[in-house]
């Protein structure tokens, strides 16, 4: 498994997006790099080869491709397939992911989009903590049943909601087997949450909850607004235990909050990754690694556990 040395949280997407945003001028440079002919005094930048290896090349040899390919919020990023891996072995219900998600999506309702479930299949089996968010299925039941094309799937694998088109029939919520969709039963009281915003919020499917709209559905959006800035989704960045890894299946790379990158296929192979309710055929984009070899007792997570509350009120924060 290849790990990059750089621990910066931005590195994942810099690695990823370089393919689109930069091109290496001299073809021979890669060869010289691989064979070790470094020119040490020049400033180096990281790029990822088509093999997925991270290499450093002199900045002068790298040219910025000026324009990002035209991005359409309904179509998504070209040639990308976003995936998430959740390592249950590391989760201790710290709930930093939830706090970050709630904060950055201005969630003020009573039901968070990211919840850490206290799971125990039966009395004979071990309990564990399981972060749950939209699974961004490749065969999304919600998209199939939506009568007005308000919830849609993009080519980069992300399932989003156009809250300006949604009629609030809630059929998608009935259809979702993962219960991850949340309805705005009243006018969301986001004034204080959004007040910190520099720009007045203008709705875009790209940033769910910014703002939320009464009578429509919200859910985890995989943070395309962060990806666009070259950042990791808020939950991934916020987790102190590196439970989440986010990345691109085409590049076969996922990166955790500490900036360590892994081969997706190797990770799933080595740790026996699986997806939830595989039998339903929804083909989720979120993979789980089983809760094995846990360093912390399950009970440690109970401190933070709140059965009836997933969104902290301002006074609790």
């Amino acid at each position: 498994m290849k790990k990059s040395d750089d621990k910066s949280r931005r590195s994942f997407l810099n690695n990823g997006l370089t393919i689109g945003a930069f091109s290496i001028i001299s073809g021979s440079l890669i060869a010289s790099k691989l064979f070790g002919n470094d020119e040490p005094d020049e400033e180096l930048v990281e790029v990822m080869t088509t093999e997925g290896d991270i290499i450093k090349v002199p900045a002068s040899e790298v040219e910025e491709v000026p324009k990002k390919p035209a991005y359409n919020e309904r179509e998504g990023f070209a040639n990308r397939k976003f995936v998430m891996v959740v390592d249950l072995a590391k989760c201790r219900n710290a709930l930093k992911c939830q706090d970050a998600c709630n904060k950055h999506h201005y969630i003020v309702g009573d039901n968070a989009w990211l919840k850490v479930y206290k799971m125990q299949e039966s009395e004979q089996t071990a309990p564990y903590w399981m972060p749950m968010m939209c699974q961004h299925c490749d065969e999304p039941a919600c998209v199939t049943v939506c009568p007005v094309d308000a919830t849609f799937k993009r080519r980069d694998g992300i399932v989003l909601i156009d809250n300006e088109q949604c009629i609030g029939c809630r059929f998608c919520m009935a259809a979702c087997p993962y219960s991850t969709r949340v309805f705005n039963w009243n006018d969301p009281e986001q004034e204080t949450a959004l007040a910190e915003e520099e720009h007045p919020a203008e709705h875009s499917a790209d940033h769910c909850g910014h703002p939320s709209i009464k009578g429509t559905v919200d859910k985890c959006d995989f943070c395309p607004h962060s990806i666009d800035k070259g950042e990791l989704p808020h939950c991934v960045a916020a987790c102190p235990n590196d439970v989440f890894l986010f990345g691109d299946a085409y590049e076969d790379t996922v990166t955790n909050g500490s900036g360590q990158s892994y081969r997706l296929s190797e990770l799933l192979e080595e740790k026996a990754g699986y997806r939830l309710m595989e039998g339903l055929g929804t083909e989720p984009s979120v993979f789980y690694l089983p809760p094995v070899d846990r360093s912390d007792a399950f009970e440690d997570g109970l401190k933070e556990y709140r059965e009836f509350n997933s969104v902290k009120k301002p006074e609790e924060l």
Binding site: V148, Q165, C166, G168
Partner: peptide, 26 residues
């Protein structure tokens, strides 16, 4: 009465998607 956004009723026709059972119902 059950719709969250009855003001967008026309979306059922403007943006109708045939594979949704709600469209069949309409």
């Amino acid at each position: 009465l059950d719709m969250g956004r009855p003001d967008r009723l026309l979306n059922l026709f403007i943006h109708a998607r045939l594979q949704s059972p709600i469209t069949w119902d309409v």
